[in-house]
Design a protein around this nucleic acid. Structure first.
Lengths: 200, 200
DNA sequence: GTTAGCATGTAAGGAGTTACATGATTTT
DNA sequence: AAAATCATGTAACTCCTTACATGCTAAC
């Protein structure tokens, strides 16, 4: 269980969960989803789609949109189940940068308990990193101005990320307690309000 | 020229530039250098060392430190030259996250002009990313609270990175002009003061 | 009419991981 | 005495990229 590099597969299943898509369009959305650095190549995408197809997790059907020939992919029932498993299964790779980003992007379709575990796991891992870097392993990596500045900036970035995670965790906890108290009278799918709106 | 994935090689050469090291110790330092996420495995490191050895860029000699047998690696003259080339050669991969981080870490041994080009190239690339994400390709990636929050947070992070780069670029420019005016009377290796000290 | 973007793929190869394998030394 | 950490490696495999290959449509 818990394939290590199933990151791309999971992202594809997640996007197809929202709507049927063809490869070219899928790629654009994937690039937005985890495009922070990576630009997915067709040489990765199409073979991945073929693989998911063979595994029966998605199905294809030809379509003629406008005047263009397209191969549109849909999630099968098996695919839907696999997505649910994969998103719930908090394996040891779920805290990695990319893996976390993708899981977070699909949080709306993730149980509240799993959300909390993922957020807390991620926070623990970042804290670990921060401690490791702060202590510096004993030695100083060449004390020139640039190395020092890089270190300073990296630490600051990780600290910011940690603060963000803490806000999210607090929101989740508050929402969970609110749900427990009112025992969900309307059966509304719990969706707390992550990080009060400071959009510039 | 400009091997695409020479990231690890460059990092090894850079670290050996500062002091001779054996594999195990090298790995620890590499993990601090670009350990933001990645933890380098021995299965990558040792073959990479063998490769550099075969290429004549480093040399090995056995050592007995304390009571432990170690294989200590040193940079050869060819290795020193290669490092200088590689760091100066601003290929199309120099703006990638990891590649940039490593180049920046060794900025103290990089010409002022090259430093500026790398910083500006990096900024341009991040700005591009930001624009792409801001415009969102036309559609909205599922407008649930979590996806929106992820987007918000990602944009904020990139903006912060951009601001940092701008500060660094300004510092470099100021230092360059100062050096031009005084025409380097003492031949001091130009090293500006990156980002005025806001260490918490 | 030519450039840009849409659309789908394949083959070869690079860079790294995991799992395996071994053994010495230091700390608990 | 056991566990942790130091120290070095190999083989198989995975994931992804680059480069190649094709052809259609929309815009300038």
């Amino acid at each position: 269980m818990s394939r290590r590099g199933a990151t791309l597969d999971l992202a594809i299943l997640g996007l197809l969960h929202e709507s049927d898509l063809h490869g070219y369009e899928l790629r654009k959305r994937l690039n937005l989803l985890f495009g922070w650095g990576r630009v997915l190549s067709y040489g990765s995408l199409y073979p991945a789609l073929k693989k998911l197809l063979r595994a029966g997790l998605i199905s294809e059907h030809d379509a003629e949109v406008g005047r263009r020939r397209k191969i549109v992919y849909s999630l099968t029932e098996a695919g839907r189940e696999r997505f649910a498993e994969e998103v719930t299964d908090v394996g040891p790779t779920a805290w990695e940068d990319e893996s976390f980003g993708i899981r977070f992007a699909f949080f709306a379709r993730t149980e509240a308990g799993v959300r909390l575990r993922i957020l807390e796991g991620r926070r623990a891992r970042l804290q670990e990193r921060l401690d490791r870097v702060r202590s510096g392993g004993g030695f100083t990596l060449s004390s020139d101005t640039y190395a020092a500045e890089l270190r300073r900036h990296s630490i600051e970035s990780v600290e910011r990320e940690l603060a963000w995670l803490t806000t999210l965790i607090d929101d989740e906890r508050r929402a969970e307690q609110a749900a427990e108290q009112s025992e969900d009278p309307q059966g509304s799918p719990s969706q707390p309000n992550p990080s009060g709106g400071n959009q510039s």
